[in-house]
Amino acid sequence: VSSEIYQWVRDELKRAGISQAVFARVAFNRTQGLLSEILRKEEDPKTASQSLLVNLRAMQNFLQLPEAERDRIYQ
């Protein structure tokens, strides 16, 4: 997982004009609270716990989908 993931998520929230709650639900089936905590802490993926890595990997995989497909999912 790239250490850029945190910025990618922030950029996607702005680009798509969606809330953290929507992104958390569709990208990795978690709550806004968890996403907020992940973004606030910005732990280095190289030293992250296994559970954090699973979530970061799910977010990264979601962000690799084509933009149009992500936008459809947000609706």
Rank of each mutant, 00 (worst) to 15 (best):
N29T: 08
L35N: 03
P66C: 04
A68D: 15
P66K: 08
R57W: 06
A27H: 04
G33K: 12
Q64L: 13
R57H: 10
L63A: 05
M59P: 00
P66G: 07
V54M: 14
E4Q: 13
I18G: 01
A16G: 13
L53T: 10
Q64C: 11
S51F: 07
V9R: 00
E43H: 07
T47F: 13
Q60P: 02
A48M: 08
Q60T: 08
I38N: 02
Q7I: 15
I5Y: 02
E43S: 07
L56E: 00
S49V: 05
V1M: 08
V22I: 12
R40K: 12
I73F: 12
S51W: 08
R57Y: 10
I38K: 03
E37S: 09
Q60Y: 10
E67S: 10
W8P: 03
L63T: 03
A24P: 00
A27P: 01
E69M: 06
I5F: 01
N29G: 08
E42Q: 08
N55I: 06
S2E: 06
S51C: 10
A21L: 09
A48S: 08
R72I: 09
E69G: 05
L63D: 02
L53N: 09
V54A: 13
S49L: 04
L63S: 06
K46H: 13
E12W: 03
E43D: 06
E4R: 10
K41E: 14
Q64A: 13
L13W: 00
F28S: 05
Q50F: 10
E4V: 07
A16T: 11
V9K: 01
A21N: 12
T31E: 09
F28T: 06
F62Q: 01
L53E: 09
A24C: 07
R57C: 09
A48C: 11
Y74L: 01
P66I: 04
E42A: 11
V1Q: 04
I38A: 06
D11M: 15
K41F: 04
I73G: 10
Q64M: 13
D11N: 15
I18R: 03
R25I: 05
Q64T: 10
S19Q: 05
R30L: 05
R57G: 09
A27Q: 02
S19V: 02
S19I: 03
A24S: 14
R40P: 04
I18L: 08
L56Y: 00
T47I: 10
E12C: 04
I38D: 03
N61F: 05
A24M: 04
K46N: 12
Q20R: 08
E42V: 05
A27G: 05
N29Q: 11
R25A: 10
G17E: 15
T31V: 02
N55K: 10
T31Y: 05
K46M: 12
Y6D: 03
L13A: 02
N29D: 09
L63E: 03
Q75A: 14
V1G: 01
S36G: 10
K41M: 08
R15E: 03
L34G: 09
V9Q: 02
L39G: 03
L65V: 07
L65Y: 09
I18D: 01
L35F: 07
E43Q: 14
Q7N: 15
L34I: 15
R15M: 01
M59W: 04
S51T: 14
G17L: 06
A27S: 10
L65F: 06
V1D: 03
K41N: 12
R57S: 10
E12P: 00
T31F: 03
Y6S: 00
S49R: 10
K41V: 07
Q75T: 13
F28N: 03
F62R: 01
L56G: 01
D11F: 06
I5Q: 03
L13I: 15
S49H: 08
I73A: 14
R72G: 12
R25E: 13
K41G: 06
R40I: 08
T47Y: 11
F28M: 14
I18Q: 02
W8H: 15
P45G: 04
I18K: 03
R40N: 07
I5M: 03
D71A: 03
N29I: 06
A68S: 13
Y6N: 02
W8M: 15
E37I: 03
A58W: 04
A16D: 03
Q75V: 09
K46S: 11
I73L: 11
A68H: 13
A24K: 03
P45F: 04
N61W: 04
Y74W: 01
R57E: 11
T31S: 12
S36M: 12
E12F: 04
E67V: 11
V54D: 11
Q64R: 13
V22E: 08
Q20H: 10
E42W: 02
L52M: 12
P66N: 07
T31K: 09
V1F: 04
T47W: 08
I5G: 00
Y74C: 02
L52Y: 05
N55T: 08
Q7P: 05
L35A: 09
Q60N: 10
I73Q: 15
R30K: 12
A21I: 06
V22G: 06
E4N: 15
S49E: 11
R10H: 14
A58S: 10
A68I: 14
S49D: 12
W8I: 14
A24L: 06
P66D: 07
A16W: 00
L39T: 02
Q75I: 06
L13F: 06
Y74H: 02
E42I: 01
L39C: 04
R10N: 07
R40L: 14
Q50H: 11
I73C: 09
A48W: 01
Q60G: 05
K14C: 10
I73Y: 06
S19L: 02
A48P: 02
R70H: 00
A68L: 10
R30P: 02
A16V: 10
A21F: 12
D11W: 10
Y74P: 02
E37N: 11
R57K: 14
L39V: 02
N61R: 11
R40G: 08
Q32N: 13
S19H: 05
G17K: 14
K14Y: 13
S51Q: 11
E42C: 09
D44G: 03
V54Q: 13
E37D: 15
W8E: 15
K14P: 01
R72L: 09
K41P: 03
P66T: 07
V22P: 07
Q7W: 13
T47K: 12
F23G: 02
R15F: 00
S51R: 09
Y6V: 02
A21W: 05
V22H: 07
R70M: 01
D44H: 08
R70W: 00
Q50P: 14
S3G: 14
Q60K: 10
